[in-house]
């Protein structure tokens, strides 16, 4: 029965939203620079929950944060985050999670039982997603700070490219491990009583 699965997906989505929020606080020091995990968690949201629930996850996070609930990393202030130089990246998450979730959904049937193919598809999906993040984030940065294009790209994109590539590969590996468990649970709960 689907009602039990609907509840499960809703709970997964809410807790993924908590994970995405937590991702802004969690940094893993690798070499001299700490890597912030939020955008990796956003990509994983798309990979694990698909487009509908992925979008719901990010939308709930942004909505609550925008109204000042304690989920944004800089604490209070809510809406002001969108007006700050990095606001564009936040808004871009919505499109990214949808894109990644959508690519996952249309390819998962074909990739079933083909782990390597799934892995490659995931990576391609996330690279497309990451391009979108910068396509929105950098112009936003330019608009707020008045920087010329060259400078905005140098500040808002270039320093993160290597880190992003690392995150994309890591996310694909994580998805490969976590996804089967989620699918199995959803399958099981679909068979059990509501």
């Amino acid at each position: 029965m689907t009602s039990s699965n609907q509840l499960r997906l809703m709970v997964y989505s809410s807790l993924m939203a908590a994970l995405v929020a937590a991702g802004a606080f969690i940094a893993i020091p690798i070499g001299p620079v700490p890597i912030v995990l939020q955008n990796m968690f956003v990509l994983l949201t798309g990979l694990l929950l698909g487009r509908k629930w992925g979008l719901a996850t990010i939308a709930v996070y942004l909505l609550a944060g925008g109204l000042g609930l304690p989920v944004f990393s800089a604490g209070r202030g809510g809406f002001a985050h969108f007006a700050s130089p990095t606001g564009g990246y936040l808004v871009a998450y919505l499109i990214v999670v949808y894109l990644v979730g959508w690519i996952t959904e249309i390819t998962q049937e074909r990739n079933r039982d083909h782990q390597t193919r799934q892995f490659v598809t995931d990576i391609v999906a996330m690279i497309i997603g990451s391009v979108v993040v910068y396509a929105i984030g950098v112009p936003w940065l330019k608009a707020v700070t008045g920087m010329p294009w060259s400078k905005a790209v140098a500040v808002g994109a270039l320093p993160f490219l290597v880190g992003d590539l690392v995150k994309v590969v890591a996310a694909a590996l994580i998805a490969r491990i976590i996804r089967p468990a989620i699918r199995q649970t959803l399958q099981l709960s679909a068979d059990s009583p509501a």
Partner: peptide, 24 residues
Amino acid sequence: PVKRLTLFSVPLFRRVFETADRLV
């Protein structure tokens, strides 16, 4: 770094999804 991220995130996601299943 890929290994570091994976080693950290996999147990975190596992625990969060376990919490979610109990919560359901």
